[in-house]
């Protein structure tokens, strides 16, 4: 059965159409979920895509957390529903307390837009099906606030519980332990700074994001 994915749109979201195109191209179905509507329309999975939700005012994701849809997203996470936050979506999920840690400004204070190599650190999550630990993927980044930080206690907890999903092989932004993506304890909520939806065809420079999205759709 085709998996129906809800792609959340906040004021300032700008990657929702790329995300929907990638999902449809890879065999899923997708529709927009407006942030002001508390209903998830019975979708099977949720993506919080990239962009600048609520203008990134105060902190990235800080205001999006209060949008009516987020209560339903939190319940969906609790019930084990698959949720993927990409870039700004990752920031929203950390601010909402659905993922550990926080994302702050890149070391070097530059907006980064480049292809990056990331490595699968754990496949015990919704993105890992069909992949092996140590697999290398070429996926682009496009962010100013992608520098992952967390307390030493949280770091040792997420390392022990295999919640680090991706690491950069050449850390572009100063992230603690080169972290590019993490998941919750159950593995059903994943956040990542790289954009897999922009790496779904050789024409885009890489098709390595397709395996990640296919796993999410399976």
């Amino acid at each position: 059965m085709t998996r129906r994915v809800g792609v959340v749109r906040f004021p300032g979201t700008n990657c929702e159409f790329d995300t929907i195109d990638a999902i449809r191209m890879l065999g899923g179905d997708a529709e927009i979920l407006w942030h002001g509507d508390p209903s998830l329309k019975n979708v099977d999975a949720i993506v919080i895509p990239g962009g600048f939700a609520h203008g990134d005012y105060l902190r990235c994701g800080a205001i999006a957390r209060f949008s009516p849809v987020m209560g339903a997203v939190a319940s969906f996470a609790q019930e084990g529903g698959p949720i993927l936050g990409i870039c700004n979506g990752f920031q929203v999920l950390t601010e909402a307390g659905l993922l550990p840690g926080a994302l702050q400004k890149n070391v070097g204070m530059k907006f980064l837009c480049s292809m990056q190599q990331v490595e699968f650190v754990s496949t015990q999550n919704i993105l890992g099906r069909g992949s092996e630990v140590g697999d290398h993927l070429q996926i682009p980044i496009n962010h100013f606030e992608g520098n992952y930080v967390c307390s030493p206690e949280v770091l040792s907890r997420i390392e022990t519980r295999e919640q680090i999903v991706f690491r950069y092989t050449d850390n572009p932004n100063g992230s603690t332990k080169d972290i590019a993506g993490v998941c919750n304890e159950a593995g059903n909520v994943v956040g990542m700074m790289p954009h897999p939806e922009r790496a779904t065809s050789a024409l885009l420079g890489s098709s390595d994001g397709a395996s990640v999205i296919k796993s999410f759709l399976s």
Binding site: Q104, K105, N106, V107, G108, M109, N147, V149, G174
Partner: peptide, 10 residues
């Protein structure tokens, strides 16, 4: 203990 990229750049 948290790095402050803005401060370091200044």
């Amino acid at each position: 203990g948290i790095a402050n990229p803005e401060g370091s750049t200044i």
